[in-house]
Design a protein around this nucleic acid. Structure first.
Lengths: 220, 220
DNA sequence: AAGGTGCCTTAAGTCAGCCTTAAGGGGACA
DNA sequence: TGTCCCCTTAAGGCTGACTTAAGGCACCTT
């Protein structure tokens, strides 16, 4: 699995290269949009990790040009923490996933494996649990033969839960996933979204672990 | 999540304790290197916030001694604003992150969550003893092919016992694990939780050492 | 440009379950 | 046999979660 890493911060770039190699990938790195474009034209990559803030422009440009050439190469965006707008824009521009900085290397590796699998067409991106089939690309799911649509926040929470069925995710962890790292939400947003998810999926689908967090029910 | 805060400035220390508790942590505080060393030997912490400038030496010494004992405890350094040299030294000495003073409390909390999560991934190990398999991520266990679920307090006590099978833990030690030290519980809470644990796991699983404490049975 | 629509957040009231407290009985060690 | 501990049980309190509703904001429509 050969990856192209596009990141201008030298320390972070080197860290990514080393870390992803340890995780079993082959990683090449460039620091600018221009170099990225050139590397992509030459090709041979199975996926790309793309920073948005680059010295000679936005990574979105690189992504747009790539897609304009008809490529379906799996792309994971690295976004600054407060720029949630960028994430939406990025997904619209054809990214397969995004991750806020700073991030956890194991999580990055896991997500990369996920989108790479998708690229291979080996396994659908679909996640299944307890009769719910989730389609990340369309941000919707099917349960009991009926299509269910989710809002962005709802979907983010549900996806986080479905990535590790049965494991407990605390409210802080879910908030971290919803917002970047340090936007403080002095409220019960997560509770409300959980409530709305239950309304759509059935009350028993998500289980509460009092004082700890939430998890998908049905784990033996 | 129980934190040790090492900070000599009283006002800042109290602020940290209160703020971090509001952020959902359990926080205990000391003011000197000597007290920090002692607290760390006793253990039971999930992370540490460590000031570098302390009345009886540098926090780096505390960190060095901690790592010398083989601990991988997540540590976040508080450094004076422009002492970037300290930061590098600190990271070399085995710190997981650093933050310059003055800092933003929400940011501190976010970074703590980050390094703590990293620590969890490291220690996501399942624990096994006498047929009980304990899964921290799910806060549940399996014994005799049957799933057993625990409340938060029950799980905390059981986990403490299973970290050192056969070792005797006194009631004060267990209470310390449940609450920080400083909060006082004038009661037999631990006894009640032990009782409930025995109900779930079988009476013989946890053994009473009269006048001393509890331990997992089956140890030589 | 104005209005509408949907989503997200905030806030307040209600509810449920865990945790604590307390009190009485039973077992171990001297 | 007496005295501590510890066990057991049950009741109340309190934290945390659920529910509902209203306001704000962005985006889309007209």
């Amino acid at each position: 699995m050969r990856l192209l890493i596009v990141e201008d911060d030298e320390m972070l770039r080197d860290g990514l290269v080393v870390g992803l190699r340890l995780a079993g990938f082959t990683a090449d790195a460039v620091a600018t949009c221009a170099d990225a474009d050139q590397a992509l034209v030459i090709g041979g990559f199975d996926g790309m990790v793309l920073d948005l803030m680059l010295p000679d422009g936005s990574g979105l440009g690189v992504l747009a040009r790539l897609r304009a050439r008809g490529s379906t190469l799996p792309v994971l965006l690295l976004t600054a923490r407060d720029r949630s707008r960028d994430r939406v824009t990025g997904l619209d521009a054809g990214a397969d996933d995004y991750l806020g900085k700073p991030f956890d290397l194991p999580e990055l590796a896991a997500r990369l494996r996920a989108i790479l699998r998708r690229g291979e067409g080996r396994a659908a991106a679909r996640m299944d649990w307890n009769g719910l089939s989730l389609d990340p690309a369309r941000m919707e799911g099917h349960i009991a033969g009926r299509a269910v649509r989710f809002s962005r926040r709802e979907f983010t929470i549900l996806q986080a839960l479905m990535e590790r069925p049965g494991t407990i995710l605390g409210k802080p962890a879910l908030e971290e996933r919803l917002y970047g790292w340090q936007e403080d939400v002095e409220s019960n947003t997560v509770e409300v979204h959980i409530h709305n998810l239950r309304f759509k999926l059935g009350a028993a689908f998500i289980e509460t672990v009092r004082g700890v967090g939430y998890r998908l029910a049905g784990a033996a």
